[in-house]
Each structure stands twice: as structure tokens, then as C-alpha cells.
Design a protein around this nucleic acid. Structure first.
Lengths: 170, 170
DNA sequence: CGATGACGTTCCAAGAGTGACATGTCGAAA
DNA sequence: TTTCGACATGTCACTCTTGGAACGTCATCG
């Protein structure tokens, strides 16, 4: 049910077409709430039907510009302040750890060291992105930096954990 | 596609019925890969059809005991060692952070402090669970402790981040 | 002028996941 | 003996997510 709010959130920063939103998704929310093109367009349709957004302009190539309505804004605020975030952590990576006893200690260690390496790379990537969005005073940038910091801490934790976990084996 | 491997993983530690697996899920994998009863039973059906598990006994009340086959074990090992973990992080909690600019700084801070509190509680909970599974030398316990440690570090990171983030606002 | 690449939308099939409902059996305690 | 809680499986309808196909437009470069 959160894709709906992701879309409302982006539209609350300014009107956009489905195509625009796709690009926005890719460069801001992609790591937090991925969505495909087909999902986006169908969600926009539903949102319009529900009166949470309006089509406020039609451009060339059938372009439709969507604008959030008062009702949509109210829904967004309601979600932000009153709906408790549902935590559903689903981690393929951790699931495997449970069953590492099924393979040799060497293979288990290899898995964990692979994860450490992956986390290290991600850390680097985040640091490089950080430089790019250092300035930027729009809401999405300001709060996006908080999210980025979260990602940074998470990646560091993950790396340290994976290194620690390797030592626990064998 | 991972529920399938979660089930194979549990069955690799010993035969069990759907009902048994449900309980196992709840107390070990629940925080890593939640599953509902209906999902479990239908997955067991598919697994049996695919020859990755066998029904090796039928007990009272229609109980069916499932046992992993050689083919199933092979699939499990293949997944563990050769299939790269797909990382899909989807976080309702972080998604909201992006849009915190839509509400007042006070509300934004309240949200973050709520998250800090939640992480703190989770940390406590993990510490209490830790005491319970301290001993236990079966594979699920040994590797389960690695997962628990991950959860512990994650919760601590999250708490610290939420406290830090609050200070960035206003 | 023609090709190409970015723009832009819509539809569809299939698989996952959710939550509720239906349908019983068995053992033990009141 | 009735009733209750644990045991036990299965089905249904719905939503979410994925990935791809199909279709067409506009501007620009050679």
C-alpha cells in the first residue's frame, strides 16, 4: 500500500508525468521503495480515480501531467503522522545465514566474505553519491540526505558484522 | 522465490509437517522471512510436485510428514552457494523520511523519536531472546545466533541514526 | 529525408503475499 | 460427556510486484 504514498509524496513536491516520476523514482526512492514502470502508471490511474491526484495538463505524445489534490495532500500527511510504519524486513541474505550449516565451513565463510565485500562496495558507492547531493536545499535533498546517512550506517554495520561472523565459524 | 528455500532449509534439519514448519517459522525465520500458513501449505504442495520433498508419513488428523529429497538438498546447496542474494530493501519507515518536509518540524521530530524508541524496544527484545538461545548447538541455533547479532547491530544503528536525525531538523 | 534515441502511455501474464474462511480430529480436563 | 484448545490441512479472493510487449511521437543529427 506504500507505492501509493511514494507517488503522492513525489507529487507533493511538484506536478509531474508518469515518465517524470519514473526517473525521480530511479534516482531517489529506488533503494528504499523500488517500483516498475507498469506499477507506476497503474497506480497513477487509481490515484486519479480516487481523486487524490488530478490530470492538470496534457502535453505532446499523450503526456499527462498529474498534480496532487488537497485530498491527496491530506492523505499523505495522515500517512506520515498517524499510520504506524509496518516493519516487514525480508532479507534473502539473512535467510541464507540460517542454513549455512548445510554447506562446508569454507563455503560458509566465502559467503560471508562475499557479503562483506558487497557491503564495502556499497559503502563506497554511497560515499560517492554523498558528494553529489551535498548541496541542494529542496525537501527531497534535505531529507534524502538523512536516508543516505542511514544507508551509510547500515552498510558499515553490515560489513563489520559480516567480518565478525566469519570469525565465528570454524 | 525464497520461501521455497526457507522451507527446504528447515526440512534439511529434519522432517516435519506443515504445522510443524509454521511453528518453526514463527520462532526462527519470522523476522527474516515471514510466511503465512496458506503460503506454507501451498509451497509444500508445489515442492512435493517438483520432487524436492516427499511425503514420508501420514499421521492422525491428516498429518503429512515431509522429508527433503536428495534433489531438494542439492537445490538448497545450489541456492546457498551459487545464487547471488538479491538485495531488495523496501522500507516503509525510510520512505516516510523522504517526505518529512511535508509536515511540521515538530511532527518530523516526533516521527524520528518514535522510531528511536521503537529501535530501543527492539534492542531490548533481542537481548532478552539472546539469553534464551545462548546454548543450543544445533545448526539453526548456531547460525541463528549470527542472525540475532545482525539484528542487534541493526537495531542499535537504527536507534543511533534516529537520534542523530532528530538533531538535523530545525 | 531517414534513422535514432528520448519521450510517453497502456496492457497483460504470472508469481508472491495477505487474510479470512471452511473443515475437521484428537486428547484432556471439567 | 461435553467442551475446549491444540493439531492439521486446504481453498478463495484480492492486492502487489515483476517483466515484458506493443504502440506511437517528437526532435535532432547525418
Amino acid at each position: 500500500m506504500s507505492l501509493r504514498h511514494a507517488v503522492l509524496g513525489l507529487l507533493s513536491e511538484g506536478s509531474a508525468s508518469g515518465y517524470d516520476l519514473m526517473k525521480l523514482f530511479d534516482l531517489s526512492l529506488a533503494n528504499v521503495w523500488p517500483a516498475t514502470q507498469s506499477q507506476l502508471y497503474s497506480e497513477l490511474g487509481k490515484l486519479a480515480e480516487a481523486g487524490l491526484v488530478d490530470v492538470t495538463a496534457e502535453g505532446p505524445r499523450g503526456r499527462k501531467e498529474y498534480t496532487i489534490t488537497e485530498k491527496g495532500l491530506a492523505e499523505l500527511r495522515h500517512w506520515l503522522t498517524e499510520v504506524p510504519p509496518a516493519r516487514v524486513l525480508r532479507s534473502d541474505m539473512l535467510l541464507r545465514v540460517f542454513f549455512l550449516g548445510r554447506v562446508s565451513p569454507e563455503e560458509a565463510k566465502a559467503y560471508l566474505s562475499g557479503q562483506a565485500e558487497l557491503a564495502r562496495k556499497q559503502l563506497e558507492q554511497i560515499e560517492s553519491i554523498r558528494g553529489l547531493v551535498e548541496n541542494g536545499t529542496d525537501n527531497l535533498s534535505v531529507y534524502g540526505r538523512l536516508v543516505l546517512e542511514y544507508g551509510h550506517r547500515l552498510a558499515r554495520s553490515q560489513q563489520e558484522w559480516a567480518e565478525w561472523a566469519q570469525k565465528q565459524i570454524g
